[in-house]
Design a protein around this nucleic acid. Structure first.
Length: 585
RNA sequence: CGGGGCGUAGCGCAGUUGGUAGCGCGCAGCGUUCGGGACGCUGAGGUCGGAGGUUCAAGUCCUCUCGCCCCGACCA
C-alpha cells in the first residue's frame, strides 16, 4: 500500500472526546472514526488489524473443533419472550417494528437463535458434542458507551455455543474453549488473567472472564498472589474475620455467665453521628463492631440491607441473592417514607420491610446499630436475639487488604479489560426451547449448554492499551496492519525513489505486507507516522544508506537499528520476519 | 437514569461591555529544504449543534431542544 493513497490520515492532536489511551491512539492513527456514541467505523488500517485478529480467532476455534455458521442480527422478539431474557436484558435490547407492526430484536447475543436452531436439528446423543460459532455484529443499547472501542453499542463478537449430553461433556467443552482462548491471547501477545466472574444477564451457574490487567480497564479484579485465586470484584469472596468481642457495656454483671458473652441491649444518645465512622468514633468501638444499614429498591420493592460496619455492599451479589433484575439505592425520602430514620435506621423493630443481611453479622456480637430515632443508637445488638432477617447471604464487597478465603493471604486489587467471557449455561435455555436429545437409553434429556464470547474491537483496543509508548502504537507482528514500513528519505535525490520502488515490488513479491511511505515529506513526519501507526519493522533508505549499498532496518519496539545490504533484501527481510514470528510463539 | 463538563473550519482552540468571526495544525499551488512533526509566499474552507425569543444589532443574553465526553448503576 502506498501511503499517499491511504484513506484515513494521521492526526497530530487527538480529538477532544478521546480520553483513554487506546481511543486517542486509534483515532490519531486513522484506524477508527466515531459516528455516534458507541458507534464506530473501522478505516482501512484498523480494519486490517481487526481482520487479522478475526483470523487468529477463527483458526483457534476451528482447531478446537468449532463449526462456523452465521446467525441473523434481526431476531423475532418471541424468541426473547420464550427464553424470558428480554427481562434481564431490559433496555439494552434494541427492538424495532417491521412494516407489519411485528416486533423484532436486534441481537445482543445469540443463545436464543442458536438454541431454537439446534432444537430443530439435533435429536440424538450421537450428534453431540457440538461446537457452533460465528463472528458477527452484536447490538446492545448500553447505558453508557465508554473509552472508544472498549465499550460500544455495536460491536463484532465471536460467540461459540457448546452443546453436550451431560455436565461432564460441558466441562470438557469448557476446558477446550479455555485452552483455545489462551492460545488466542498468546498469539496476540496479550497477557491475560482468568478470573471467576458473575454471569450477569447471560445467566448460568459458572463463568470465567479473561482479563488484560491495565490501568485503563473498567473492571476490577481481586486476586491473591499467594494462592492464585482471582475473581471479578463483582464475584470475589473473602474471609470475613470473626471480630473479637470488646465488651461495650459498663454493666459488669451482664457480661458474665452468658455463653456468647451477649450483653443486654441499651439505647445511647449519639447526637450528630450519621456516618459509620462517626458513630464508631463516638462510641469508641471499631467499625467492625457496628452494623451498617443501606436501602435499595429491587424491582420496585423496598429492601433493608445490613452489613457489618466495616464492609460495603456488593450490588451484584445483592442482586443475585434477591434474584432481581433492577436494583438501585433508595433515596433519603423513600427511606423516611418507609418509616425509617435515615442515618439512625435500625433493623430492630422494623416491620413490613424485607431485610437482607450479610452473613458477617453473625461474626461478632454486641454491635452498635441505629435506634431508628434521630440522635440515638443501640449498643449490644445481637442477631438473632434482637432482630430477624428475611435473607442471609454473602453480599459484601471484597476489598484490597482483605484475607483470601482459600489461603488467608492478602488480597490485592487491579484494573482490567474483560477480553473474553465463558459461561457454563447448563440447561435453563435448552429447556425453554425444548432442545433435548435421546440418550443411548432412549431417554429424552435437555442439552447441556455453554457459551463463549470474545469482543474483537475490545480486544484490538486492549492490545493498544497494553502495548504502546508515547510515540504511538506497538502492534505485535501477528496483527499489525502491515509488517514493514518502507521509508525512503529525500525522494528527489538520485537513486532514492527508484530504489525504494524496486524494494517495494520485491518485498511484495516475497509476500511481505508493506506500507510504502511514498510521500514527499520530511524525515520527522515519516518517522513519527511510522511510530504512531505501530508497524513492527521500519526500513529506511536515504542517500546515506545507499552510499553503502544498504538500507536501515529498525524494529518498532527496539531502539537500535541495523544495516542490511541491498542485495537479496527481500529474502533477508522474509527471514527476519519469520524469525520474529517464531520468537513470539 | 443521577451527577459534572463541552458543542465556533477536517483536528486543537481563541472570541472582551452584544456591533456581523479569528489563531495553530492540516489542506491546495509555487519555491527553498530533507535522518525525528522544516520554512517563505499565495489560496480554499464557517447555516458559530438546532429551534424560538429579547434587541436597531446575538457566537455572545433568555427559553427549549439535540448531540458528545467524563464519574456512577450495566457488559464482550
Amino acid at each position: 500500500m502506498r501511503f499517499s493513497k491511504l484513506f484515513g490520515k494521521t492526526l497530530r492532536q487527538a480529538p477532544a472526546e478521546a480520553e483513554s489511551v487506546s481511543h486517542q491512539l486509534l483515532l490519531r492513527a486513522g484506524m477508527i472514526a466515531q459516528e455516534a456514541a458507541g458507534i464506530y467505523s473501522y478505516l482501512p488500517m484498523g480494519w486490517r488489524v481487526l481482520k487479522k485478529i478475526e483470523n487468529i480467532i477463527r483458526e483457534e476455534m476451528d482447531k478446537a473443533g468449532g463449526q462456523e455458521l452465521m446467525l441473523p442480527v434481526l431476531q423475532p422478539f418471541e424468541l426473547w419472550q420464550q427464553s424470558g431474557r428480554y427481562v434481564s436484558f431490559g433496555k439494552s435490547l434494541f427492538t424495532l417494528t417491521d412494516r407489519k407492526e411485528h416486533t423484532l430484536a436486534l441481537g445482543p447475543t445469540h443463545e436464543e437463535v442458536i438454541t431454537d436452531l439446534v432444537h430443530r436439528y439435533v435429536q440424538s446423543y450421537r450428534e453431540l458434542p457440538l461446537l457452533l460459532y460465528q463472528i458477527q455484529t452484536k447490538l446492545r443499547d448500553e447505558p453508557r458507551p465508554r473509552s472508544g472501542l472498549l465499550r460500544v453499542r455495536e460491536f463484532i463478537m465471536k460467540d461459540l455455543y457448546s452443546f453436550d449430553a451431560d455436565e461432564a461433556g460441558l466441562d470438557e467443552s469448557y476446558q477446550k474453549m479455555c485452552k483455545a482462548y489462551r492460545n488466542i491471547y498468546a498469539r496476540l501477545g496479550l497477557p491475560t488473567l482468568v478470573v471467576e466472574a458473575d454471569s450477569g444477564a447471560i445467566g448460568g451457574k459458572e463463568s470465567h472472564e479473561f482479563m488484560v490487567l491495565t490501568e485503563g480497564g473498567e473492571d476490577e479484579v481481586i486476586y491473591c498472589s499467594s494462592c492464585g485465586y482471582a475473581a471479578n470484584v463483582e464475584k470475589a469472596q473473602f474471609a470475613k474475620t470473626a471480630e473479637t468481642v470488646i465488651p461495650v457495656s459498663r454493666n459488669p454483671e451482664s457480661s458474665e455467665g452468658e455463653a456468647k458473652n451477649l450483653l443486654s441491649l441499651e439505647e445511647i444518645a449519639t447526637p450528630g453521628t450519621k456516618a459509620i465512622e462517626e458513630v464508631a468514633d463516638f462510641v469508641g468501638v471499631p467499625t467492625s463492631q457496628t452494623l451498617k444499614s443501606v436501602f435499595y429498591y429491587a424491582d420496585g420493592e423496598f429492601i433493608f440491607v445490613i452489613t457489618r460496619g466495616d464492609l460495603e455492599v456488593n450490588e451484584t451479589k445483592l442482586r443475585n441473592a434477591l434474584k432481581c433484575s433492577d436494583l438501585r439505592l433508595a433515596t433519603e425520602s423513600e427511606v423516611n417514607e418507609a418509616g425509617l430514620v435515615a442515618g439512625f435506621a435500625s433493623p430492630i423493630g422494623v416491620k413490613g420491610v424485607k431485610v437482607v443481611a450479610d452473613d458477617s453479622i453473625t461474626l461478632g456480637s454486641n454491635f452498635v446499630v441505629g435506634a431508628n430515632k434521630p440522635g440515638y443508637h443501640f449498643r449490644n445488638a445481637n442477631y438473632p436475639r434482637d432482630f430477624q432477617v428475611d435473607l442471609m447471604a454473602d453480599i459484601a464487597l471484597a476489598q484490597p487488604g482483605d484475607s483470601c478465603l482459600r489461603c488467608q493471604g492478602k488480597l490485592s486489587l487491579a484494573r482490567g479489560i474483560e477480553v473474553g467471557h465463558v459461561f457454563k449455561l447448563g440447561t435453563f435455555i435448552s429447556e425453554r426451547f425444548g432442545a433435548s436429545f435421546l440418550d443411548n437409553d432412549g431417554k429424552s434429556r435437555p442439552i447441556v449448554m455453554g457459551c463463549y464470547g470474545i469482543g474483537l474491537g475490545r480486544l484490538l483496543a486492549a492490545i493498544v492499551e497494553q502495548s504502546h509508548d508515547d510515540q504511538g502504537i506497538i502492534w505485535p507482528l501477528s496483527v499489525a496492519p502491515y509488517q514493514v514500513y518502507l521509508c525512503p528519505l529525500s525522494l528527489d535525490k538520485p537513486m532514492v525513489a527508484p530504489t525504494a520502488e524496486k524494494i517495494y515490488q520485491e518485498l511484495q513479491k516475497e509476500g511481505i505486507e508493506v506500507l510504502f511511505d511514498d510521500r514527499d515529506d520530511s524525515p520527522g513526519v515519516k518517522f513519527n507516522d511510522a511510530d504512531l501507526l505501530g508497524i513492527p519493522l521500519r526500513l529506511t533508505l536515504s542517500p546515506r544508506t545507499l552510499q553503502s549499498q544498504s538500507v536501515e532496518a529498525k524494529w518498532r519496539m527496539e531502539k537500535e537499528a541495523q544495516l542490511l545490504p541491498l542485495e537479496n533484501l527481500a529474502v533477508q527481510m522474509k527471514k527476519l520476519l519469520d524469525e520474529a514470528v517464531k520468537a513470539q510463539s
